[in-house]
Amino acid sequence: MLELRLVQGNLLKKVLEAVKDLVTDANFDCSSTGFSLQAMDSSHVALVALLLRSEGFEHYRCDRNVSMGMNLNNMAKMLKCAGNDDIVTIKADDGSDTVTFMFESPNQDKIADFEMKLMDIDSEHLGIPEAEYHAIVRMPSSEFARICKDLSSIGDTVVISVTKEGVKFSTRGDIGNANVVCRQNTTVDKPEESTTIEMHEPVSLTFALRYMNSFTKATPLSSTVTISLSSELPVVVEYKIAEMGYIRFYLAPKIED
């Protein structure tokens, strides 16, 4: 028996919007730790890791570890039927081949049940080693989204370079090239508007902008984004989900042939 009650049901809606274009089918794992997902895109270039900790749910019952295979587009379709203020409960019986999403309006005057078929998904779980990153950039998520969108109108790849001057996002294409430099800025009034750069070593890596743009669909989940870079390692683009956990996107770099 599994029953997870999330008062902020719209968090789940936002999570699905953030991952459904990157990953088609995925296993959601449920354990005493929380509700999690790890999945790669079909070309194995990007990986998404989601954790919603059990403490973040108003009610969290998970009698045994379960893995539920879901088509993310279908799940997104069902969650779109929940109101933004609705409380969402995820329910599944042991051994069942369906999952139920229950939506309750805040004043309890409307209750809806949406039952979705589960699927068997053969996915390999990857071990993500702890790494010391050469540079960690924290910036407003909307600013990062804007930069990725702007650069993708010029080129297909972005070079992210961190030096003591700041973080530079560069691209080049047929029509020309573009560079955006963001400097550390902690003097703004609101911490969510600041940019901080923690650099242990200068680092410069090249990535496909198509994936970066896909990651920015998680922008509504968090006002800030953290970009962790190390030479010859996948970049980690992390959006913290307040009180609950995180969504992390890993993207393999383009490397010298």
Binding site: G127, I128, A252, K254
Partner: peptide
């Protein structure tokens, strides 16, 4: 020339 690497080149199953 740069080529796209894959996640599986960095993280192994487990």
């Amino acid at each position: 020339v740069r080529k796209q690497s894959q996640i599986t080149a960095f993280f192994s199953p487990g």
